[in-house]
Amino acid sequence: MQNEELIKACRNGERAAQKRLYDAYAPQMMGVCYRYAQSLQEAEDMLQDAFIRVFSNLDQFRSEGEPGAWIRRIVVNCAINAIRKRKMQISAWDNQPEELHPITDTDPEIKLGAKELADMIQKLPDGYRIVFNLHAVEGYTHEEIGKVLGIKPASSRSQYLRARALLAKQVNLLQQKSK
């Protein structure tokens, strides 16, 4: 079944087609959720909410596009919403002390597997994790991140740099251990 036909069947509420779409994209999207979530369970919740939203809003999807990118956008939005629901004070990032995780210029070359790196990202503090994912992985600019999260672009930049510094430190430690 072609993508267009699959999407059409999903729009008609055919459960078999929805399962096929889910099977096709769930592992990739679970990877996205995993990076944003604090735990595996939270990632599963995010994925669940995201696919419910996908199936409910398929009418808005333009058939000529690739469903993967559209679904990924929904997954990222759901992840951000889920984090917001935890009543995390995103605005408080603007006032974080500089010395918490000092920004460094030393970035080791990453010689880790995807799962190891994702695990590391998952262990980052909320603010670092979200900004790192949005900027480094999804390619959002700091201005866009500022708009999405309601923080200053400078805060987003600062969060990213601290996240990178913390990741670099952990990558170094892990790589030294493995040697």
Binding site: R15, Y22, P27, G31, R35, D107, G113, A114, I121
Partner: peptide, 26 residues
């Protein structure tokens, strides 16, 4: 370069969700 490297590594990252997720969606 750091971003590019992260993107490259994580682009291949997938994780199979447990069956319960689909059952719950269903």
């Amino acid at each position: 370069k750091f971003k590019k490297q992260s993107q490259e590594i994580l682009s291949s990252f997938t994780q199979d969700p447990p069956d319960q997720v689909w059952h719950a969606i269903n």
